[in-house]
Design a protein around this nucleic acid. Structure first.
Length: 864
RNA sequence: GCCGGAGUGGCGGAAUGGCAGACGCGGCGGAUUCAAAAUCCGCUGUCCGCAAGGGCUUGUGGGUUCGAGUCCCACCUCCGGUACCA
């Protein structure tokens, strides 16, 4: 909030210049300007990444998009604009900037479209990429298009396969029979996200669990490092926290319970509360637990079997969703509590997850809410072992003194934990254990449109990795993208491709018909951008050492866990393998907020297009009718008729206006609603800048003259340089733009715009609205692109000498303002303040008991 | 339930503990125009007042401070994530 300066603004000046403008009124035509400069940049290869490595580097990366058939929506350019602004700013600051774009193009939508249309997914993918590229280029982003890559390109996925071999070499990839979501109606396997309530979300077809041989990656082997290394990252705390929760480290103990009358049967449980072992009055196994069969008594077998069958047919979601009541069946088996020596019943219950811990628990109903609920339902005994609650009323999960616990009695929970673990370890009944929620990563998909696995299986079942020189294993052509009739993945249709020989021994072998998940390609693309055309290596080590890590990575928060965790995992494996030099790939992460939009719905729930509604007295109506509408802010979607399309916005207002609006809407990381009128405002600002500085003939406006700026104007300029620079560094683009608008408003108030000042303004504007800036720069005498011009420097001395309006308060209430220098002495300020009539009035007849003066901030006089 | 984040004009939003509402949108008035659009100038939180000026105002209630949108405590609402994790 600087002082408002008046540079002799008056109507007569405005009138005089209006006359002049009419004579050579320059009209802002973004479509011409933008086309022209986009061609210029392309022809001159303006944004090619520099080869030299003597300057500091800045690697700024967008999460590359999946090129969907729907094309770009206005959410995409939000993050892309932010990174582009920074890329342009950093170039002007003398950095070598790496700013690439590519395509995460494997994936299900293209495959499904291929099935529907009977075309090859590659063909559809190329079309979609072409469309995305066209749309992205229209926004004038300064990507180095020589480095464009697609995960679907064999020259790219060759190295994805190569990294898989590294994972195998290091024992991190293995095959196992695991349950998958099989949809018989679709004849395909579905991802977990596609299944809800046991049905395929798109068609409602039932989904069942099926055991299939899958590839898995041992990501938990890196759990500790993935957790610890989060500390050093400049990431949003919320994302770090989500990753911590996902990894789910918990400390506790593994405890072994012998089963009565069943030789060799030992039930292992993981517990974070070994201190409550004396209160373990029963046990529960997950329905899938391997011991269920062998320990169930014949009397209970039928009941247990039917319970297990029921559980099997429920999806994970259904099982966990039914939080209302817990169910289970007694197996009839009895286990021995290792510390009390008492026999306790062993139940089966689906509130115990097969996939967490050991798939079995010791139940301590007195001190665990879930166990308490189960015990209550089946009338199982509850024993209090921690005092401080009433276990007949509810589980007491807090701290307290141990009771009914033999040698632990009198201890607090923390001490008791240590003591009991020591006791268990001495007797070989258990041990200290750190458990992770993070599970092995299911890494295969029964799909066509993904990376083939670089392995073959010999007749005896041994799986052999292919040698490096056999890469890439390219996707074969198949006659259809459906699974085979007997449920094999689509690749099984390529019989001749599947039947091959082991390159090592020449023995007959079969290729893998699963493909990798979509996450694979995005796990390392940031490395390939560094050296995208290298045929010998995934990435040249010298280049890698120069460019890594990524200095800034911008994308949506929806990738908070999976993509970002998987990529970190691969990166650490590559680090161990000596392929990369940094422990972490992304130094700074930033999540752009979601862009929502207003939608309009009538009483029947039918949506109306924003072009077809109008506001009257604060209420919304269908245009020209009395039909009242309900408006709300929602995610953009076709069905809600509230999608903003970047192509249309650019057609109407230009790319620079769209870029500006995307940034001006609010803080980058916030969720915010789209309002097309806001784009109009930005267009207006750009047109004003154009009219002020440019003439119709492509030269500068007559009002721009070779003169030096008056002091106050010079100060206003440097204030703006300071502000815009600070806001860019802090990624506060909205307020940076506001500062530019303010400066332009000041310039409209003066008769003459000094040409040097105009040039500086254009440089400040250029990262935000590069097309217009280039056009103006040329008109102001520039002979080539301004992309590598030096960023304006602040003249600090000029700012220090600025005078400001200082607020004068009496008893904390504003009574006037005085104009003083920033660091004016107290005496001077006090004297000046007393001359203000309104201040005087409030001091009159009272005594000043305290004078609070904060230079440059405030003067507060306390009176009695 | 738990973990994040946010509540400020008609709307989007701005404010290192120091003039709340920058900037933009919208609205109102004026200039220009045959007219409209566009453009330019001005006004625009709210209440009282002819005015000068004053009161009130950042989800609610308390507190700290000369001074609180900002810090502390309690609560309410909304958004995002996550959930039988033993």
């Amino acid at each position: 909030m600087g002082p408002r300066l008046a540079f002799g603004a008056c109507a007569s000046v405005a009138r005089r210049y209006r006359g002049h403008e009419e004579a050579s009124m320059a009209e802002y035509r973004p479509e011409e300007i933008e086309k022209r400069w986009q061609s210029y940049w392309e022809e001159h290869r303006t944004f090619r990444t520099p080869e030299d490595r003597t300057r500091p580097k800045y690697y700024v990366l967008d999460m590359f998009p999946y090129p969907s058939g729907a094309g770009l929506h206005v959410g995409h350019p939000e993050g892309y604009t932010a990174t582009d602004i920074l890329a342009r700013y950093k170039r002007m600051r003398g950095f070598n900037v790496l700013h690439p774009m590519g395509w995460d193009a494997f994936g299900l939508p293209a495959e499904r479209a291929a099935m529907r249309e009977g075309r090859h997914p590659a063909e559809l993918t190329i079309e979609n990429i072409d469309n995305f590229r066209r749309q992205i280029k229209r926004l004038g982003f300064s990507y180095d298009w020589d480095r464009e890559l697609s995960t679907t390109d064999p020259s790219y996925y060759r190295w994805t396969q190569w990294i898989f071999l590294k994972l195998m070499e290091r024992g991190l990839a293995y095959q196992a029979e695991v349950p998958v979501n099989w949809c018989p109606a679709q004849g395909t396997v579905l991802a977990n996200e596609e299944v809800e309530d046991g049905r395929y979300v798109e068609t409602g077809d039932p989904v069942e669990r099926r055991l299939m041989k899958q590839w898995l990656l041992r990501i938990p082997a890196y759990a500790e490092r993935l957790l610890d290394d989060l500390e050093e990252l400049d990431w949003p705390e919320s994302i770090k926290e989500m990753q911590r929760n996902w990894i789910g480290r918990s400390e506790g103990a593994l405890v072994r319970f012998a089963v009565e009358d069943v030789a060799d049967a030992t039930i292992e449980v993981f517990t974070t509360r070994p201190d409550t072992l004396f209160g373990a009055t029963y046990m529960v196994l997950a329905p899938e637990h391997v011991l269920v069969d062998s320990i169930t008594t014949s009397a209970q077998r039928a009941a247990v079997e039917s319970y297990r069958a029921q559980a099997r047919n429920k999806s994970d979601l259904e099982r966990t969703d039914l939080a209302k009541g817990k169910t289970g069946v007694d197996t009839g088996a009895r286990a021995l509590n290792p510390v009390t020596g008492e026999t306790i019943p062993v139940w089966v219950g689906d509130y115990v997850l097969a996939t967490y811990g050991t798939g079995a628990i010791m139940a301590v109903p007195g001190h665990d809410e879930r166990d308490w609920e189960f015990a209550r339902a089946y009338d199982l005994p509850v024993v209090e072992v921690i005092s401080g609650g009433d276990v007949t009323e509810a589980a007491h999960t807090g701290d307290g003194e141990l009771v009914n616990s033999g040698f632990l009695d009198g201890l607090r929970v923390a001490e008791a934990k240590g003591r009991i673990i020591d006791w268990l370890e001495e007797r070989g009944l258990g041990e200290r254990r750190i458990n992770y929620r993070l599970r092995d990563w299911l890494f295969s998909r029964q799909r066509y449109w993904g990376e083939p696995f670089p392995v073959v299986t010999l007749e005896d079942g041994t799986v052999r990795p292919l040698p490096e020189d056999a890469l890439p294993v390219e996707l074969p052509h198949v006659d259809a993208y459906r699974p085979t009739e007997d449920g094999e993945p689509p690749l099984a249709r390529a019989r001749d491709w599947v039947r091959t020989t082991d390159p090592g021994s020449g023995a007959p072998a079969l290729r893998e018909t699963n493909t990798m998940p979509q996450w694979a390609g995005s796990c390392w693309y940031y490395l390939r951008f560094i050296d995208p055309h290298n045929d010998e290596l995934a990435v040249d080590p010298e280049l890698e050492r120069y460019w890594m890590p990524v200095d800034l990575y911008v994308g949506g928060a929806e990738h908070a866990v999976l993509h970002l965790l998987y990529a970190r995992f691969w990166h650490k494996v590559l680090y161990d393998a000596g392929v990369v030099s940094t422990k972490e790939p992304f130094r700074k992460l930033y999540n752009q907020g979601m862009i929502l939009a207003f939608s309009y719905r009538d009483g029947n729930g039918k949506y109306h297009h924003p072009d077809n509604v109008e506001e009257r007295d604060g209420e919304w109506y269908v245009k020209g009718t009395e039909e009242r509408l309900h408006t709300q802010i929602e995610k953009m979607s076709k069905s809600k008729l509230n999608v903003a399309n970047p192509d249309e916005v650019i057609d109407r207002f230009g790319a620079d206006a769209l870029r500006l609006y995307e940034m001006y809407m609010g803080p980058l990381d916030q969720t915010k609603p789209w309002q097309t009128d806001g784009v109009r405002g930005m267009h207006r600002f750009l047109a004003r800048a154009f009219r002020l500085l440019a003439a119709e003939d492509g030269q500068r406006a007559a009002r721009v003259v070779d003169t030096s700026a008056p002091r106050e104007l010079e100060q206003a300029l440097h204030r703006t340089i300071r502000k815009v620079t600070d806001e860019l560094e802090g990624m506060r683009f909205n307020t940076g733009i506001a500062a530019l608008i303010e400066l332009l408003n000041e310039l409209y108030r003066v008769e003459e715009v000094p040409v040097d000042l105009a040039r500086t303004f254009v440089l400040l504007l250029s990262p935000f609205a590069p097309h217009l800036a280039e056009e103006l720069w040329e008109g102001l005498g520039g002979t080539e692109t301004l992309a590598y011009e030096a960023w304006p420097e602040v003249n600090e001395r000029l700012l220090e000498e600025e005078t400001i309006e200082l607020a004068v308060q009496v008893n904390g209430r504003l009574r006037g303002t005085i104009v003083v220098t920033k660091d004016a002495a107290k005496d001077e300020v006090l004297a000046e303040a007393r001359t203000v009539e309104n201040v005087q009035a409030h001091l009159d007849g009272r005594t000043v008991v305290k004078e609070i003066y904060v230079p440059g901030r405030i003067l507060n006089l306390i009176v009695k």
